[in-house]
Amino acid sequence: MAEQAIPGWKKWLEGSGDQVIFLKGFFRNVFRGGFEWSEFVRQCYEIGYKSFMLVGTTAFIMGLVLALQLRPTLVNFGAVSMLPKSLAVSIVREIGPIITAMICAGKIGSGIGAELGSMKVTEQIGAMEVSGANPIQYLVVTRILATTLMVPVLTLLGDVLGLLGGFLAINITSSVSAMLYFNKCLASIDFTDFLPAFIKTIFFGFVIGFVGCYKGYNSNRGTESVGLAANSAVVTASLWIFVIDAIVVQISSLLFYR
């Protein structure tokens, strides 16, 4: 037993060391000249545009369901007028960011892991390295920066569509004008709701890109490792997203909601 536990730990520690080195490589290459703009824009398009429908639909449904679920409870307390406020706060602070991040981890993270994994297995990354080009700059930096930019953007879209879903649910039972609803929503969200939530989505985006790239870039030889890279990219990124979420909630409640 003990003999098996030690290599496991050793492997884990080695893995963390590799990740730190990979992270250092990323930062070194971000600030080096020759940034790959066209590839960056292409990645933003791939990542942002192609996840837009999925994120939008999911957020819309979540908003709708959330409103339908909240309503009876609020009616019991005679606080139906609080519905837009509670919707807005829960969507902007938590549901929007986390739903978007989870979907992106599943869709984008696995995509990056699989793509880089297969490039590794078919020696494309090796060929870039050996030719004297810089695969970290071309493949990794662009992807990580693209997710870091696009996940927050997608979250904003998700927030808006989630609130729209909530509006639809409210409109089923009682008729409220869209104007009034959105005014109420906006009035109930302030800076301290929005800012920490927005900042954490930047970290979510970074983690999704970083983990996907790391897993893909360091996958082993053999085709099965492509699937493994994609799979572990999703699992690890999801885990990190929750950890970051927990940390951000602690920090922001210390700062803002005492």
Partner: peptide, 28 residues
């Protein structure tokens, strides 16, 4: 710098899948 002086033909060819032939050749 050394690698710029060495050409390496991979056993598998190792073409960049996401690029056309022209882009593959332009890359180096």
């Amino acid at each position: 710098e050394l690698r710029m002086k060495i050409g390496f033909l991979f056993q598998s060819g190792a073409l960049y899948d996401s690029m056309t032939v022209r882009e593959n050749l332009e890359f180096p």
